[in-house]
Design a protein around this nucleic acid. Structure first.
Lengths: 145, 145
DNA sequence: TGTTAAATAAGAATAATTCCTATTCGCATG
DNA sequence: CATGCGAATAGGAATTATTCTTATTTAACA
């Protein structure tokens, strides 16, 4: 995603294009492991020292409302952000802090047909999210941890 | 679960049987909707005014370590507790705060055989948890909200 | 019943997140 | 290109779930 792509993302959602928003968007693209607000601030501050943490939260909230990012809750006490908004699942590593996106269309179809057949009494399903917990073999997660 | 059952649960795990622990255990059994530490305290305090919030967290942490409760993370900023420890999934209601346990052995078998066949490269699966998001038809969740 | 390690009460401390307000700035309009 | 306005940002204070600390109390066992 280059600069003009990023400008396009913001203006397509009716958002003013500000350097801060571009910087946060850039950080979301650059940082691979579902960064926290804090790590986004740290990353952006290297090039853009004035960005305030409150503004980072502000921007991330706006992005969340506009569907530019999703939030990933962890077992720890903070939220992590994900620029991927297409439906997907998550791999949680037991032994490190890595959270990896997991896409599996076959699985999605399987689940959809299962619940279409079986249903859940008195409940309309809107979305299904799998938390797949385990560990990387050889404890060797994808790069850029 | 009656009083002697609860005493049995505690001593089976090598825990001292204290009135506070029994009260918290009783609250977990009595409160249906994955209570927070705060609502457990409120419930217990009606009969047992001296129980401190810090002690509630303390007890819940001990219970968690001993496998007596599980923790359920929500989209809000707090943890909710569940006395059910057998593997299960969760229904999250979009429109209210209800979180319901969802047991489905057929689904578990389906998922297990799916991943046994397909696997995930470089990853050992230990547990799979579904977050099923949607809404109750007629917005009519189980009693005791 | 006395001993002791563990549990509790009470409140201070912590940390992620939100709120507040003055200032700045993007951008639409003229 | 200049201007005005509503939105965005900076900085710091406030909030809140949770953890930590310490003195006191208590359950369990000899």
């Amino acid at each position: 995603m280059n600069m003009s792509d990023m400008i396009g993302v913001l203006s397509a959602k009716g958002l003013k294009v500000t350097p801060q928003r571009l910087a946060v968007l850039g950080a979301l693209v650059a940082l691979p492991n579902h960064p926290t607000a804090d790590s986004i601030k740290a990353y952006v501050n290297e090039q853009f020292p004035s960005l305030a943490l409150g503004t980072v939260y502000n921007i991330l909230d706006v992005f969340f409302e506009k569907g530019i990012v999703t939030k990933v809750k962890t077992d720890r006490d903070f939220v992590r952000y994900d620029i991927e908004v297409n439906g997907h699942h998550h791999l949680y590593c037991d032994e490190c802090d890595y959270i990896e996106n997991y896409f599996d269309e076959e699985l999605d179809n399987l689940l959809q047909s299962y619940f279409q057949r079986k249903g859940i009494p008195n409940f309309n399903i809107r979305d299904i999210n799998l938390q797949i917990v385990g560990s990387y073999i050889n404890h060797n997660p994808p790069k850029n941890l």
